[in-house]
Amino acid sequence: MRRLQSPRRTYDWGSREEIPDFLGQPVDGERVAEVWLGTHALAPSLVDGPDGPRSLLEVSGELPFMLKILAADRPLSLQVHPDAELARAGFDAEEASGTPLDAPHRVFKDPHPKPEMVLALTTFDTLVGFRPTAEILRVLGALPTSLTQKLAERLRAEPGFAGIVALVEQLVTDPPTPQEVGDVVAACADGVQRRTDVKRAYLTALEVNEHHAGDVGVVISLLLNRLTLQPGEAAYLATGIIHAHLKGMCLEVMVSSDNVLRAGLTSKHLDPQGLVRCVSGGMSRLARVEPEQFGESTDVFSPGLREFALSMTQVSPAEPAGTPLPDQGRRIIVCTGGEVELVNEHDERLPLRRGSAVYADAADGTIRAHGTGEVGQAYTPTAEDRATPLTDLV
């Protein structure tokens, strides 16, 4: 077992307090958005060693998964992640063009797809996937603006997934003026006042507009499902699913990738046509991940992929011999609450407090946790783990 030092990422949507508090670090005014735990080339973790810190990559080899601690104080960008084919083609094209890996306008940072799963540490709000056609028509039809009525008319003429994607393409390639967006916002405010909000659609648009006034993403938010996860609940975001996290803190586990195509709600580089090309799937492939039980105290969240799963273990003195963690391969373990001590098969011990993280591999064998707290573990699942079903939300 090796203790990890992992880089913080500061973006304008991050929280000034959540991650520093989680890590037990002083609040310095920076908006800390993410902590990356893994081997991705842009921000690899370091491991403690007798001769000082070393890159985790040197110790573990390239990991197929990455674990993040994410804290959003305002909406993230409206985005889609590419599938394997689009990721490889995009990466090869940008490599051939000589675009530096850290260039602000670079889109494909690696050749990998980026499916991901979020597990809420606090109440976590996100927009994921399209609403059904009928619901979108109810949302738009009750807003008496020229823009929303034109969008509704077009969707009636071409209903279903293809028609909704066509609306998004129209909006991101020929964005409405700030005045047109403002008119929609005013109509949403009136709808909330009159209690005619459709499944929080208007309230969401108002919340997004507070941080991104006049942005096309405010209008697109009306087309998307809003999901609220309570602490301990998880959801899977497949590639090709349009989404925008709104607020809250979570663990996020994904294929080790940083490929993101954006079309709004951000100061970062936009690639609207690329986003439209990446959108795929049915009306909504949003899915809650129902956990499977491991032992007495562990929930295993597995979306059925070969690259990653996430376990959450409650540790207490009720198991005097220690609480066993699943898996015996390469894994990243983070303490998400309380204080625990990890013990491997060689009786090596490592104390952790909230925010501490370690890397372990096959040489450690089964790890048991002692104390009182909670630990999350990202790892490569077995075929049995990958059989966990998903619950579709439409």
Rank of each mutant, 00 (worst) to 15 (best):
P7D: 11
G329V: 00
S77W: 09
S316I: 02
M312H: 04
T266S: 12
Q314K: 12
A84Q: 13
P111W: 11
A72N: 09
A235M: 15
P291R: 08
G338F: 04
P111K: 08
L137C: 12
W13H: 04
T380G: 09
N225M: 08
L251W: 08
F308Y: 14
G355A: 04
Q377K: 10
A87Q: 04
R16P: 11
M283W: 11
A72Y: 05
P291I: 11
G281Q: 06
S257C: 07
T266G: 06
A238T: 07
V253T: 15
P176I: 01
E34H: 01
A362E: 15
P317V: 12
A120P: 00
G163L: 07
Q149L: 11
G365A: 09
F22Q: 10
L270Y: 10
M254V: 08
D347Y: 06
G29A: 13
R306I: 00
F308L: 07
R226S: 07
R277C: 01
A134E: 15
A96D: 13
D21F: 04
I19W: 05
A362Y: 13
P381C: 11
V260A: 09
Q5M: 15
E341C: 14
E210N: 13
L223R: 01
L137S: 12
G373V: 10
Y202C: 03
A166I: 00
R277Q: 13
E94K: 01
P113K: 10
F108A: 00
L155P: 07
R194W: 03
L167E: 05
R138F: 01
E18L: 11
T177L: 09
E384C: 00
H245D: 09
R386Y: 03
T133A: 08
R74L: 08
Q193H: 14
E158H: 15
H105G: 08
G61E: 07
Q79F: 05
S280M: 02
G90H: 02
W36S: 02
K114W: 06
L155Y: 04
D327G: 10
L246N: 05
S45M: 00
G217P: 00
N209P: 08
R349A: 14
R330Y: 07
C188Q: 02
D125E: 15
A166L: 00
Q170D: 15
G38P: 11
V219M: 10
P132K: 01
R354V: 10
P20G: 01
M1W: 11
E62R: 15
Q377P: 08
P351K: 04
S297I: 04
V255K: 04
L140Y: 11
P111F: 12
L265V: 03
K68W: 10
V32T: 11
P104D: 03
E345I: 12
F124E: 00
P82S: 04
E135D: 15
L275Q: 03
G214H: 02
D364A: 13
G24I: 08
L352P: 03
G232W: 13
D174N: 15
V394N: 14
Q170V: 06
P176L: 02
R349P: 02
T382Q: 00
L325T: 05
G141C: 03
L393H: 12
G282M: 06
K268A: 13
G376Q: 12
S284G: 11
S97D: 15
V107F: 09
T228C: 14
G295Y: 10
A33R: 08
D28P: 07
D392R: 15
L143V: 05
P351E: 07
E210W: 00
I242A: 03
G338Q: 03
S297H: 14
D364Y: 01
K68I: 05
A152I: 10
L393C: 10
